[in-house]
Design a protein around this nucleic acid. Structure first.
Lengths: 349, 349
DNA sequence: CTGAAAGCGCTAACAC
DNA sequence: GTGTTAGCGCTTTCAG
C-alpha cells in the first residue's frame, strides 16, 4: 500500500540500493543490462523517488520559491500569467514552485522561511529600485533571480520588461501618427517614490524621448482607479487643451480616462489617442474602443525568471543572465492620426 | 555558516537532541526550565528546523499542492485572488503551497507527482461535474479538497460558489426592477458539455427561477470573447426584441454585449440592463457604465479550500466540510428599471 | 520529566 | 562496473 522504496526496487532488480540511485541519477556509469533490470523493477513497482528523502540527502530540494508582494497595486491578469508561466517553467525542469506572498518589508519572515532550507532558490517579483528583500538575499547568499531590478543590478541576474524600449515605441508610434502634444500617465506618486521600477523608468524615458522628438514632456501621477483617471482627464484637457494623445502605464486609470473622455463627448481615437503600456490583452480588449497597447511578455518573463534561477542552481559557472524583453505593440482601436487642430473638440467645463 | 541543527541547539542547552524536538513540537511535556534554556539556545543560534528532515521523519511535509487547469477559459483577476488567498491561508497555518498547473486530463502526471510524497494533500480547483482528477485522488486515497464539486460530492469536502443562490439573486434583482424579459448568457457549449460546474448549475437555476417568476427562460451559449458577445447581442435582440435584461456569467462576452449595445445605439441601463454573475470588481469597474455584478468571494474560497484540507490533515476525526458561499450583489451602473415598452429602442439591423 | 537510539528514504563517499 | 556504509536532520519509540 505505501509507496515503494529504492530498497525494494534494488531487491527486485538484484542489485545494491546505491546502484539504483546511480542508475536513476546517472551519477555513475551503470551497465546497460543492469540499468534495464532496474528500469523494469521500477516500472513494475510504480516507483517514484521520495522527494523529501532525496532532498535531505542531496541538500537540493528542487523546490524554488516565488516571492511576491502581498498587496501590490492590485494584481491582475498580467500577474497571473506571469505566475502561471513560472510554474510551468518550474515543472518543465522537474522543479516545484512554492508561493510566498509576503509584505515587501517583511524581511524577517523571509529569512525564517529561507532558513527552513526548504527551497534551493528564490525568484523575486516586483522588485523595487531599492529593495530590502534583495539586500537580504544577497547578504545571506541564497541563489535568487529577479523580475524587475534594483538600481544597481550590475552583478545580479534578472529578467525585466525593457521599459526604455517600450516607452520609446509608444511615443514613437504616436509621433508617427502626427501627434505633437502627448502626455504620460503614470502610477501614483507614492509608487514612484517607493521606487517602483516601471513608474520610474517609463517616466524618465518618456521625458527623454519626448524632448528628443521636440515635444513638451508633460506627465501626471494618477491613482490606480477609474475615478482617478476620470479626474486626471478633466484636469489635463483643461490645463493642456492642445493635448491629442496619451501614453499610459496605469491600466485602471487608463480605463478612467476613456470613461472621462466618453462622458465629455470626446471620441477616441478621433479626439484623443490613447496607448496603454504593459497592459494585458485581456484588459485591452475590454474597453470600447479596444486599447492599442504594448502587451507585456508576462508568461515569458515567468519562464525566463525561473530558468535563470535554475541555471544558477545547476551550473557550476553561474554566469549572470540579464534580459530585457520589450512589450509587443498591438494596434487596436484607441489610436489614430492627430486630430485637425481646426476642428474643435467638446469643451470640458 | 551552514544552518544550525537541532543537535547544536541541544548541546548549547545541555539537553538531549530529542528533548529539543519535544520542546519544539510540544509532543511531550518539558519542564518550564529546560524549555526556557532550549528557547534561548534556539534564539542564540537563530535556529529554524529543517523542513525536509522534519518531513522525512514525520512523514508530513506540511506542503500542499494547488492543482489548477493549465489553460482554462482564460484566467483572470478572480483566479489570481483565489490563488493568493490560498497561499496566504497556507502560510497562516505554517504550510507551504506548491503550484501544479496541469492539463485537466493529465491524470498520469498527477499520479507521478503525488507518488513523490512531497505533498500532504491536494487542493483541486475548477472541478468539473465529472472529473478524472477527483476519481484518481479518491482512488489512491490522498487527502484532498475541492473548489467546485463533481455531481456526486456527498462524501467529499468542498468549497464552492453557491451558484443556485447567486443566480437566484441576480434574477430576483432584475425582476424587482420590473424586468419580464430576461435572458441568460452562458459560457460556451463546450464548457457546458465538459461539465463545467458554473455553466451547468447557473443555467439550470436560471431556467427554474425564471419559470417560477413566470418568465420565459431564454438562454444562449457564447464564446469567451468580446466579439462573440457582440454577435450574440445582435442575434438576441433580433430574435427577442422584447428583451430588456441579461444575466451573464461570461465576463468577456459580457463586455462584448455592452460593446455591441453601444455600437447599435442602445443605452445601458436605459435600453438594456446587464448583471454580471461572478465577475470581479476589477473588471466590473472597467466598463462604461460599470457593471452591476455579483462579486465572487475568491479570496475566501481560497482560504476556505486550504483550511478544509489542512483540517483533514490534522484532525483525527476528518469530518466533511461542505461550504457554499454566495456572491455579493454590488449595484453599479448597468442595471435599471425595465424600459417603458412604448418607448422604441434603436433598431438592430 | 529526560536520554539514547533506531529509523525515515535517499545520496555520495569509500571500497573492491 | 557494483556493493557497503555513513550520514542528511529530524521524529518517535523504548528505557529509565
Amino acid at each position: 500500500m505505501s509507496a515503494p522504496t529504492m530498497q525494494q526496487v534494488a531487491r527486485r532488480a538484484n542489485v545494491a540500493l546505491s546502484t539504483v540511485s546511480y542508475a536513476l541519477n546517472g551519477t555513475r556509469p551503470v551497465s546497460e543490462e543492469t540499468r534495464l533490470r532496474i528500469r523494469q523493477a521500477m516500472a513494475d513497482l510504480g516507483y517514484q523517488p521520495n522527494a523529501l528523502a532525496r532532498g535531505l540527502a542531496s541538500k537540493r530540494s528542487r523546490i524554488i520559491a516565488l516571492l511576491f508582494p502581498a498587496l501590490p497595486r492590485g494584481f491582475g491578469a498580467t500577474e497571473l500569467e506571469f505566475v502561471t508561466g513560472a510554474a510551468e517553467a518550474a515543472q518543465e525542469h522537474a522543479y516545484h514552485l512554492v508561493l510566498w506572498p509576503m509584505e515587501i518589508h517583511a524581511v524577517g519572515e523571509l529569512q525564517q522561511l529561507i532558513r527552513q532550507n526548504l527551497v534551493d532558490g528564490v525568484l523575486v517579483m516586483e522588485v523595487r529600485l531599492r529593495d530590502e528583500r534583495i539586500d537580504l538575499l544577497r547578504h545571506i547568499s541564497v541563489p535568487f533571480s529577479m523580475i524587475g531590478r534594483p538600481t544597481d543590478a550590475s552583478d545580479l541576474s534578472f529578467a525585466d520588461i525593457d521599459w526604455e524600449q517600450t516607452t520609446h515605441d509608444a511615443v514613437t508610434y504616436l509621433v508617427g501618427l502626427g501627434h505633437r502634444h502627448v502626455v504620460f500617465l503614470n502610477h501614483t506618486e507614492d509608487a514612484f517614490n517607493a521606487g517602483y521600477g516601471p513608474a520610474v523608468r517609463a517616466a524618465a524615458t518618456f521625458d527623454q524621448v519626448a524632448r528628443e522628438a521636440g515635444l513638451m514632456p508633460i506627465s501626471r501621477f494618477c491613482g490606480d482607479t477609474a475615478l482617478a483617471g476620470q479626474e486626471v482627464f478633466e484636469e489635463l484637457v483643461t490645463a493642456h487643451p492642445e493635448l491629442t494623445a496619451m501614453v499610459t502605464i496605469n491600466e485602471r486609470a487608463t480605463v478612467g480616462v476613456m470613461q472621462g473622455a466618453a462622458m465629455h463627448g470626446w471620441r477616441i481615437p478621433d479626439d484623443l489617442s490613447v496607448i496603454s503600456v504593459a497592459s494585458s490583452a485581456r484588459v485591452a480588449e475590454m474597453t470600447l474602443p479596444p486599447l492599442t497597447s504594448l502587451t507585456p511578455p508576462s508568461s515569458e518573463l515567468g519562464h525566463l525568471g525561473v530558468e535563470t534561477l535554475i541555471g544558477q542552481l545547476e551550473e557550476e559557472t553561474s554566469e549572470l543572465v540579464q534580459r530585457l524583453l520589450p512589450c509587443r505593440l498591438v494596434i487596436r482601436g484607441s489610436t489614430g492620426p492627430s486630430p485637425d487642430p481646426a476642428r474643435p473638440r467638446p469643451r470640458v467645463p
